Simulated scan of single mutants.
Amino acid sequence: MKNILITGGAGFIGSNIALKLIDKGFKVTVLDNLSPQIHGDNPENTSPLYRNIINKVKFIEGSVTSKEDWINALENQDAIIHLAAETGTGQSMYEIKKYIDVNIGGTAMMLDFLANNAHQVKKVIIASSRAIYGEGKYNCTKHGIVYPVEREDKDMESGDFSCKCPLCKKNVELLPTSEDSKIHPTSVYGITKQNQEQLVLTVCKSLNIAAVSYRYQNVYGPGQSLSNPYTGILSIFSTRIKNGNEINIFEDGKETRDFVFIEDIAQATILGLEKEEANGKVYNVGTGVATDVITVANTLAKYYELEVPIQVSGNYRLGDIRHNFADISKIKSDLGFEPQWDFDKGIQAFTGWVNEQEIPVDKYELSIEEMKNKGLYK
């Protein structure tokens, strides 16, 4: 396989994978709509991600919701890395049709073409997400392994943000989430990622096309959008800090995520492209380490050497999960994947890059106001 199509290939993850594939001798085509929310209004000037790839790939400006764009993009392709998607859990809860149309509809259009037209595609890699798990795996002292349901508004309003056993309602202990854990997303975004994964694995199997699904954890690193206030806590916090604005930490600040550096994401994805052992399988991609949000804020402030108020507000968003970190033993065993970047090393690289960028306009308050108006922010 030498000709690789990356949908969403001008984005943060896609552009990094594209450059690494080019270095390995692959020919890369990118289909991307250059969304202003990510790339700005004039990508040639406002999007370093786009500029990084523009003269190195065959670039098609278009949408995964357009049949004509798919026909154009799929010509002579050996494999597809399908990353194009609307992202962000909060925004997905009120831009529902948009998320369904792009994430599910775009994937369906790709598969429909593969099922009904001549092509040479041999493998499809789909970007899934840790969001499909909702709350991850926990241990209850009475009932063993359990999967908590979405937290109650009334509990969070009273300051109780912990996850409960769905059987006895007692607090439970966090465990790493493995690929065989219960799938029960708590956001529209998570639902669309679950559907994308299921569609690709099911249809590709029937077409004798190899398929691999990657459930990415919280991806970060140099190049990610600093102007998008809807996704990426590291970008949101960085933009706040660089503008001298207060950091508003939701809940009690003890909520955790598994932050995985972009270089490790690219490495894992390319392993899935090249290794037959990955075919037909799903993999978590993370570090296997849970980092709480207070640590995130304090670490960023330390490396920026800037002091801003850090306020643990008790605010919360409906649809947010409390915790999730990955069990990555499967991808280690099958593909030999080993994360090379721990959180501290990755944050140093990320903040060093941010310090070289023009300070973006902070749109965080506007995004919060949107969620308030929709009744999703408390």
Rank of each mutant, 00 (worst) to 15 (best):
E263N: 11
I265P: 02
A266D: 04
A268S: 09
A268E: 01
A268V: 11
T269E: 03
E276Y: 14
A278Q: 13
N279F: 13
K281A: 11
N284W: 02
G286T: 10
G286Y: 09
T287I: 04
V289P: 06
V289H: 10
T291Y: 14
D292C: 11
V296H: 03
N298P: 09
N298G: 05
Y303W: 14
L306P: 06
V308M: 07
P309D: 15
I310E: 02
Q311H: 15
S313A: 12
N315G: 09
G319P: 08
D320M: 09
I321V: 15
I321A: 05
R322A: 11
H323C: 08
N324I: 01
I328A: 02
I328R: 01
I328G: 03
I328L: 01
S329N: 01
I331W: 00
K332S: 00
D334H: 06
F337R: 02
E338T: 08
P339S: 10
Q340F: 05
W341Y: 10
G346Q: 00
F350M: 04
G352E: 05
W353V: 00
W353S: 00
N355F: 07
E356F: 06
I359Y: 05
P360V: 02
K363I: 04
K363V: 03
Y364F: 13
Y364K: 01
E365Y: 01
E365S: 13
L366A: 12
L366S: 09
S367I: 06
E369Y: 04
E370M: 12
E370S: 13
E370F: 13
G375Q: 12
L376V: 13
L376R: 10
